[in-house]
Nucleic acid binder design. Sequence first.
DNA 1: GTCTATAAATAGATAGAC
DNA 2: GTCTATCTATTTATAGAC
Lengths: 211, 211
Amino acid sequence: MKRAVRRRPRQEPGSKARLFAAAATAFAARGFAGANVDRIAEAAGVNKAMLYYHFKSKAGLYAEILRDMFESVAARLAATTPQTDPAERIRAMVEAIAREAEARPHFPAIWLREIAEGGAHVDKGTIAIIGGILQQVASAVHDGVAAKRFRPANPLLVQLGIVGPVLMFFATAPMRRRVPSQLHLATQLTTEQVIAHVQRVALLTLEGKAR
Amino acid sequence: MKRAVRRRPRQEPGSKARLFAAAATAFAARGFAGANVDRIAEAAGVNKAMLYYHFKSKAGLYAEILRDMFESVAARLAATTPQTDPAERIRAMVEAIAREAEARPHFPAIWLREIAEGGAHVDKGTIAIIGGILQQVASAVHDGVAAKRFRPANPLLVQLGIVGPVLMFFATAPMRRRVPSQLHLATQLTTEQVIAHVQRVALLTLEGKAR
DNA sequence: GTCTATAAATAGATAGAC
DNA sequence: GTCTATCTATTTATAGAC
């Protein structure tokens, strides 16, 4: 007869996942140095020692969040490859980045912080993933040029023009609430508007003949 | 006969200015929480106690750097007002922001971090200055529309489209050095190219009729 | 896998002499 | 204005019982 073996002593949706989620929020809000493992564990409703059991250190936990983040973006971008029309591909890439920022709310803030930090916490593997993201944008531009649909453009400028505004839009949301400006209070922007605008601007840059 | 009074016991270019500069660098590189007052004082070649003498705390020092930063941007933007031609004014504003980022190398990273932090360290007065910056962009757009030179556009989108790429360009410089991509190693971007590109894109957005 | 207790280091801040 | 010594709180991390 099968005995009722206790499988999981007390944790419900997996203490590891809970810690991961709480840490992502904390790192986004306060940065790597500013976040505090005691508070992360508390927010996760998990004992602090579990953090060191699942991840080997605060740095290890952070590195895992970074890798997960960039892996997801890279995957979402890779999924746009079937698009054979250059313009459609660019549109899909803009949307991919924006949707990812929506799906992982910690992602814009953490990315901005990591940029400011010069990638100090980014390990080798993650560096490669980030390089791959740049490569994907570059190849989309390159293909469009080869198909005589885009004029030659610096891929880095294209990337800055897409990622910059998108990240800023999501990341500045909390701050905009603090700046009492009738302007953007009156004109609430939606994710859809931002996507459409950045898509339009990116294509204006790539398809325009001027300059 | 005039006695040789000792005016300044031992400090050369003003210990306050030295601390300020060292702190700006440290906060840019490591963030508010990540920076360390001991190391700031050491980098400044000034005794740590002086930091508390000139500024009342680590937070006070940081707040002063923030205010100085946004004041400078606001001033540089205000200086573009004489431009009566709407397009020229936008061009001047783009250049103003980029030149400021060059003049104060700590400015892009700190701004990105403050965005990520939701403006947690920004005091009332500085909030007002930031609001003024947004206002200036908005009024430039508004004036252009009134003069029938621009089509109506959301000022926030315009701002994101300018500040996003410019900040990202400067702030990602250290990280780009770490990402081994043939792409942007082959195509080194200059500040001038970035300014020209962002100016062009901003005006394409504002002057274009398509939607 | 989970929890308590605690080690060990670091950081912000100040007192007080000069 | 400058410097030394130090206090105190906080924080990462681990040992070890269950």
